[in-house]
Design a binder for these strands. Structure first.
Lengths: 257, 257
DNA sequence: GCCGCACCCTCCCTCGGCGGGAGCCGTCAT
DNA sequence: ATGACGGCTCCCGCCGAGGGAGGGTGCGGC
């Protein structure tokens, strides 16, 4: 019984894990000691448990969550694929955040000029979709492509519409001003009225920076923004460098007194 | 007193924050309500507080920690620069982890062949430095450059020595086998004896994968690894593609019985 | 047989940034 | 006056540990 059984401290040194970690993994059922003394509660491990123990350490060092590691250890397939996908999305988000922070550091907080403009109601054709937050960019591009494919050449301003409260799934819409109906698309009317408007210069990824400044301006004056945010795409992203893209951001205001 | 004072829920909608968040920021002193009713404890905010509130929201959306945001709000300089540096290091680490996970997914867990070899004691010249974990790569390269600059052409095997327990600061050493003293470097002797050895093929970033496999092999047999890990650099990273780099990993064993 | 030391046990607190909910009270429009 | 909200405080949970309190054990030396 005592042959080759290691108490937790020795086993921890062998596997380069802490005693706390081993107890935690025992508690979660990831790595049960080969023998637990029923009187004292002492945990004893066999050297053969070093490989699964170190596998846990390896995967943890790669930021794989413990529940996923548990499923890997129990032989479930495709667990790591899912982890990989989540890590990839997380990585992309962090890269965007990092780029935004660098922009703030080099250019300061965006303080765009905000103006109040009176917009007429506009008759538009609309293409809609939904996307998780991190896929908004490509999904919007796809909507634009579908819209332009349906209408041919653009004959009016191209507008993106996004809800202000960013939930898990975001309803994305792209609208193009038009004079008549276009088959295969839904026609709609964007409401007119007073809008607060600011201009964003830079990559589409960093639009949230200017949106925040716009909404701060609106909030400071005690207005409540209404309805979806409008993004008027002024530049052609195919021919303009990312950091020169111009976008007008507009939000409808409630009663202006 | 009531002019333009908003209760917490209305202010939360205005700033696109949750009531919970606003209470939390109040508790931390990041954003104190303009007025708190001393009888009821009700918090009231002014529209002018929307800008700092939304700044908190913006920075949080970029993963800036709340304590750092607090220092930004109180006008401290260079806070975001520090945050940026930490984010950059974190991002690099996550990218390495992601690459390692992709390797595991495409090639499976590394299961290198492990052999026990008898090594002679080797007389070497050594260059030492210390580095935080995430800077081990470049610091090691710099040590190699210094070593080669001091010795001229390499006349023996090039070895990296790394402690097994990865602490905050890691002592890095690079050794080159030599027959005589070289001025300006320290001379040393690598101990001989029995070593467990495995071969890593791939980027230096992913050496930990094979190290884990090697140590698992050692641990499974009940041996305790001794002293620093040796990495014998077989390939020239200047002329070999990253995923073909060959490195021998060796660890001294205790008494083999 | 006994001492001491290293080791082991369980239980609880801490960190960050909230979300969820219980249980209670305030505000405001009808 | 009444009900529908909305506000308040307090506590728990998440994740993956680390830290420490307070107490029991294993083993070597005398």
């Amino acid at each position: 019984m005592n042959e080759g059984h290691l108490p937790i401290g020795r086993f921890a040194r062998l596997c380069r894990l802490s005693v706390k970690q081993l107890r935690h993994y025992d508690e979660l059922g990831l790595l049960t000691p080969a023998y637990v003394d029923p009187d004292t509660g002492y945990r004893y491990y066999r050297p053969g448990q070093a490989r699964p123990a170190m596998l846990i350490g390896l995967l943890r060092s790669l930021d794989v969550p413990l529940p996923s590691i548990g499923r890997v250890l129990s032989g479930e397939a495709d667990v790591l694929g899912g982890v990989r996908d989540r890590m990839e999305a997380d990585l992309a988000r962090r890269e965007r955040n990092f780029a935004a922070l660098e922009r703030i550091l080099s250019e300061g907080l965006p303080r765009p000029e905000v103006t109040i403009v009176r917009e007429p109601a506009r008759r538009v054709v609309v293409v809609r979709d939904t996307a998780p937050q991190e896929r908004i960019g490509p999904v919007t591009s796809a909507c634009v492509a579908r819209l332009l494919a349906a209408t041919g050449a653009p004959d009016g301003m191209l507008v993106g519409l996004f809800p202000l409260d960013m939930a898990e799934e975001v309803a994305v819409a792209v609208a193009l001003e038009t004079s008549g109906d276009v088959p295969g698309t839904s026609s709609d009317v964007l409401p007119g009225g007073l809008y607060a408007s600011a201009t964003h210069v830079g990559a589409y990824d960093q639009i949230p920076l200017t949106v925040h400044a716009l909404l701060a301006w609106v909030g400071e004056r005690g207005h409540t923004p209404l309805g979806p945010l409008r993004e008027v795409y002024v530049s052609d992203p195919a021919t303009t460098p990312q950091d020169r893209l111009v976008t007008h951001l507009m939000i409808k205001l409630d009663d202006l007194e």
